[in-house]
């Protein structure tokens, strides 16, 4: 990569950092401006006395200007102090730590399914002829209308009531048992995205198959398999990668639904529970975490694409 491309890439990554900064401001201020006095929540249900109110306001620096509170919050987050849950009165970090592993495992499991079946079926649809294409088209048309909660209840019914091959509740003990328990949640999470990735992959490959540089390769007598690997798949990969990044980021949010449906105690179900109980510090930190994941994933994807296609940083700006 040329120095110029690297500078462009750095500018792009800087833009992503700015996005993260602005998103953190948005999240903080949205919560800070929430109707209702946080003191009531902090007092934990009891009607607070004026002295207690004073103590709580002082402890949480609620009398400082909002931007000071923001800086304190961000400073704390950067140093690992994620704040204190209104509901449990325990540090948010202690709530997240035991749950994050199982959520990551669930998302990773789903990502593997999406990559193998989504990209795989997309490639098959593009190269295997009209009958396969049609079959995949029908499958993906239905797939993109199958949200996690619908797949979840079908799986719970089929496997919980009728077949009984996989557990439909909880997470189990140890990695293998974890994976066994997460099979159905991962499938429910993956179905819609498999269909979506399949369509994106097929579209990207078909577009490249019709690209004029592929004509050149054909006239030069290169074998069809070589043309597919070196000219079609390679050139389709930036688009597939770009969509993958956004997809995985969205997946982490949707995993809340799968966790809820199958009783998996991950950060998704923690987020839902916190929102239901107005536990704002937890919601704030988890939202920020998900945005951070989005930004990091996009940075990784941008770098990967820039390695394949150094021109991408010049032409494919933020739009």
């Amino acid at each position: 990569m040329s120095a110029y491309a690297i500078r462009q890439l750095a500018a792009k990554l800087g833009g992503l950092l700015l996005t993260l900064l602005l998103a953190s401001i948005a999240i903080f201020f949205a919560v800070a401006l929430t109707p209702g006095d946080p003191v009531t929540a902090l007092a934990g249900g009891v009607r607070p006395t004026p002295e207690l109110i004073e103590a709580i306001r002082a402890e949480h620096h609620l009398d400082d200007p909002v931007w000071m509170q923001y800086l304190r919050w961000v400073g704390g987050v950067l140093q690992g102090d994620l704040g204190t849950s209104f509901v449990y009165k325990t540090p948010v970090a202690e709530l997240i730590a035991p749950r994050i592993g199982i959520s990551l495992l669930l998302v990773a499991y789903a990502v593997v399914l999406i990559t193998v079946f989504g990209i795989g079926s997309g490639i098959l649809a593009a190269v295997r002829g009209p009958r396969t294409d049609r079959a995949v088209l029908i499958g993906t048309s239905i797939g993109v209308a199958m949200p996690t909660f619908v797949v979840a209840i079908v799986l719970i019914w089929v496997f919980g009531r009728v077949l009984g091959w996989f557990p439909v509740y909880g997470t189990g003990e140890g990695l293998l048992d974890n994976l066994y328990h997460l099979t159905l949640p991962a499938i429910s999470l993956a179905v819609l995205y498999i269909a979506y990735m399949s369509r994106i992959t097929r579209g990207a490959i078909v577009a490249q198959q019709h690209a004029e540089h592929v004509d050149t390769a054909r006239v030069r007598g290169l074998s069809p398999s070589r043309i597919f690997r070196r000219h079609v798949l390679l050139n389709a990969s930036p688009q597939i990668l770009a969509v993958s990044g956004a997809t995985i980021a969205g997946l982490i949010a949707v995993s809340a639904v799968a966790e809820q449906a199958f009783g998996v105690g991950g950060i998704g179900s923690l987020l839902v529970e916190a929102a239901a109980r107005k536990d704002l510090p937890v919601v704030q930190v988890l939202s920020l975490l998900l945005v951070t994941v989005f930004v990091v994933l996009n940075a990784v994807v941008d770098v990967a694409i820039a390695i394949i296609d150094p021109d991408s940083v010049k032409s494919r700006r933020s739009a």
Binding site: T19, L20, L22, A23, A26, I27, A30, V31, T34, P35, A249, G250, I252, A253, V254, A256, L271, V272, A274, A275, A276, K278, D279, L280, V283, S287, L290, V291, F294, V295
Partner: peptide, 17 residues
């Protein structure tokens, strides 16, 4: 900035508020 916050997360955030 808006794009960086997944829709479901923004909705959950709104419910919390």
């Amino acid at each position: 900035v808006i794009f960086a916050i997944p829709g479901l997360v923004l909705a959950v955030l709104a419910v919390a508020m």
